[in-house]
Simulated scan of single mutants.
Amino acid sequence: MDSVRIDKWLLAARFFKSRALATHACELGRIEANGQRSKASRDVRVGDTLEIRNEGGTFQVEVLGLSDVRGSAAVAQALYRETAASMAAREKVEAERKAMHALGLAPEGRPSKRDRQQLDRVRGRG
Results as ranks from 00 to 15, higher is better:
residue 15 F to T: 00
residue 59 F to A: 09
residue 10 L to D: 09
residue 109 G to L: 12
residue 39 K to A: 05
residue 116 R to F: 00
residue 84 A to S: 15
residue 104 G to W: 13
residue 44 V to Q: 04
residue 66 L to Y: 09
residue 30 R to K: 14
residue 3 S to P: 08
residue 118 Q to D: 07
residue 120 D to T: 01
residue 84 A to K: 13
residue 126 G to N: 08
residue 93 V to G: 04
residue 122 V to H: 01
residue 25 A to R: 01
residue 10 L to I: 15
residue 98 K to S: 05
residue 83 T to P: 05
residue 89 A to V: 12
residue 62 E to H: 05
residue 45 R to N: 09
residue 6 I to T: 04
residue 50 L to P: 02
residue 33 A to H: 03
residue 33 A to S: 07
residue 37 R to V: 06
residue 91 E to K: 10
residue 124 G to N: 08
residue 90 R to Y: 07
residue 71 G to Q: 08
residue 41 S to L: 15
residue 109 G to S: 14
residue 104 G to L: 11
residue 32 E to M: 12
residue 49 T to H: 08
residue 51 E to A: 03
residue 108 E to M: 14
residue 46 V to Y: 00
residue 71 G to D: 11
residue 109 G to Y: 07
residue 40 A to V: 00
residue 100 M to Y: 14
residue 48 D to K: 10
residue 125 R to G: 04
residue 30 R to W: 02
residue 67 S to H: 13
residue 28 L to V: 09
residue 126 G to F: 01
residue 111 P to M: 05
residue 122 V to K: 03
residue 87 M to T: 12
residue 116 R to V: 02
residue 20 A to H: 14
residue 4 V to L: 02
residue 92 K to A: 13
residue 91 E to A: 13
residue 3 S to M: 07
residue 81 R to Q: 15
residue 86 S to P: 04
residue 109 G to I: 14
residue 79 L to A: 06
residue 95 A to S: 08
residue 98 K to D: 03
residue 65 G to D: 03
residue 58 T to V: 11
residue 112 S to M: 02
residue 92 K to I: 02
residue 124 G to T: 07
residue 17 K to P: 09
residue 73 A to R: 04
residue 15 F to R: 01
residue 22 A to D: 10
residue 9 W to M: 03
residue 40 A to F: 00
residue 6 I to Q: 00
residue 21 L to C: 02
residue 75 V to M: 05
residue 73 A to V: 05
residue 55 E to R: 11
residue 34 N to K: 09
residue 43 D to A: 15
residue 122 V to D: 02
residue 116 R to G: 00
residue 39 K to V: 06
residue 56 G to E: 09
residue 57 G to H: 06
residue 81 R to S: 14
residue 58 T to Y: 02
residue 31 I to C: 00
residue 105 L to H: 08
residue 105 L to G: 10
residue 4 V to I: 08
residue 98 K to F: 03
residue 68 D to T: 09
residue 90 R to E: 02
residue 79 L to T: 09
residue 11 L to W: 14
residue 62 E to V: 15
residue 118 Q to H: 07
residue 102 A to V: 09
residue 53 R to I: 07
residue 84 A to V: 11
residue 81 R to I: 14
residue 77 Q to N: 14
residue 75 V to K: 10
residue 42 R to K: 15
residue 77 Q to R: 11
residue 38 S to D: 06
residue 95 A to N: 12
residue 3 S to Q: 08
residue 61 V to H: 13
residue 97 R to A: 13
residue 29 G to Y: 13
residue 60 Q to S: 13
residue 71 G to W: 14
residue 29 G to N: 08
residue 5 R to M: 06
residue 2 D to S: 11
residue 82 E to I: 09
residue 59 F to T: 11
residue 17 K to F: 03
residue 99 A to E: 14
residue 8 K to R: 10
residue 99 A to L: 11
residue 94 E to Y: 04
residue 95 A to H: 13
residue 88 A to F: 06
residue 18 S to I: 05
residue 109 G to P: 05
residue 25 A to Y: 01
